[in-house]
Design a protein around this nucleic acid. Sequence first.
DNA 1: ATCATTTTGGTAACAATAGTTACAACAAAA
DNA 2: TTTTGTTGTAACTATTGTTACCAAAATGAT
Lengths: 211, 211
Amino acid sequence: MATNKYISMSVIKRLPRYYRFLSNLKDDGISRISSKELSNRMGLTASQIRQDLNCFGGFGQQGYGYNVETLYEEIGKILGVDQGFKMILVGAGNLGRAIATHMSFQSRGFELIGIFDKNQAIAGEMIKNIPIRSINVLDDFCKENLPVVAALCIPSSESEEIVDQLVALGIKGFWNFTHFDILAKYPDVAVENVHLSDSIMTLSYQVMNTA
Amino acid sequence: MATNKYISMSVIKRLPRYYRFLSNLKDDGISRISSKELSNRMGLTASQIRQDLNCFGGFGQQGYGYNVETLYEEIGKILGVDQGFKMILVGAGNLGRAIATHMSFQSRGFELIGIFDKNQAIAGEMIKNIPIRSINVLDDFCKENLPVVAALCIPSSESEEIVDQLVALGIKGFWNFTHFDILAKYPDVAVENVHLSDSIMTLSYQVMNTA
DNA sequence: ATCATTTTGGTAACAATAGTTACAACAAAA
DNA sequence: TTTTGTTGTAACTATTGTTACCAAAATGAT
């Protein structure tokens, strides 16, 4: 049990994948699994799995392996799927709407409580039982409802201003779909980037350079 | 000039970001930049920039720096933004539609030539001047038009079957938005994963554990 | 023009991080 | 018991990133 030490981002990034595989194992009615068997299924080394899990405590048992249900729940706790962080979404264009409707926020630790767009014409439209609000009421809404996290699906040009505004309103994390890089300007704000354009360009490189 | 040596994925993943910053510099009318100045703007070390760029050749000049326009074009070539790889999109739900309408495929090295969905009811609908086709005609379409890359926006449960089918049809790369992990089953097929659920869970962890 | 000075990229040596191999300790099964 | 299976962890290796330095080019003074 070594909960206080620093955990590298490499480890954190692997946790959701473990969580996913454990969920599948559960669905398949498998109640125990060894690091070796899991490593076969996931395509990585058994040792890495053991080392990753040991960052958070000894969840396994020698000669037995890991209890699927327990491990699933433990990783869920580590990732905070039970936190229900209040989230707002800014930008209700194609991508914003898709994110709002497509994602299962609740099972990932979030609760979507508001959607905002600068386009007055679409204000009032409902997405997943949440009305699109004008960006003009963002301030008031945040002061009243205290969201913790914001998903950004707006053009890059508007990003910096909105980020400043939201940080001032107490936002502690961004799910950033814009091209804008939220830099170390705000050291105690978490940022998770989803740069789709970067991703597709990486694919292009890979296609060119794969045997 | 060392073009033949292996380039690590860490370097490749940074290239689109360089490309983005260089594009901004160009727009701002800046024609030359030193690794030091660029490192300031990007929040990384000057040395890393020089080392990264040197993987592909000596684009800079001592005492001068890098020519923005030239470097932009060179990185573009490395990433293959001029390749125009034929791409199809499978799954025209919320996410698939958003990807199709939101992304600028052309400027990233791709050309979207077909959209497919298993739902017969939406067949014929147009997205970006491309008709949604039934998944039943996927085989014929691919044999005739020879797409190279496929974007997957379908449920995980259907992924494995579709992947097998597409690989058999000659697809060399996947832009994978599903939960399904395309494993090393096909070693000469490139895969770029966009696991949105994994991403949002990572954010949850970060929000909990950021000072 | 020329020469010293400053700037800067390229590269090698070094350091830090991440991942693998190896094994002792323990639990389960026979 | 003894044997087998499996974890947790230490030692080792590989990869990635940083520091340090040299040579080339630009700049500025004479």
